[in-house]
């Protein structure tokens, strides 16, 4: 994983201090303490297992596209 780039994800379920997100078609449980008011369907940036920011749908698509080209994203 890269330590200075975020991974785009979609929030599927919000729990107490974590959320289930979809990254590259894979479900992951990530920390959601760093961003307030996260809700289902939000587009977010995940970094080192934590949501660090919300993004727009178009930014999500753009980042997905970018990361597809980085083979490192596959190993995430």
């Amino acid at each position: 994983m890269k330590l200075c780039v975020g991974i785009p994800a979609i929030v599927l379920e919000v729990k107490e201090d974590t959320a289930i997100v979809e990254v590259n078609g894979v479900k992951k449980e990530v920390d959601c303490l760093l961003v307030s008011e996260i809700k289902n369907g939000d587009y977010v940036i995940v970094h080192a297992g934590a949501i660090i920011g919300k993004i727009s749908e178009s930014e999500y698509k753009e980042l997905v596209n970018l990361l597809r080209e980085m083979e490192e994203a596959v190993t995430y």
Partner: peptide, 19 residues
Amino acid sequence: GVGFETTAPTYATRIAKKL
């Protein structure tokens, strides 16, 4: 745990909240 500004808060939450 290594990292720069992007990674530090992912550790900080759990440490600060003693989780």
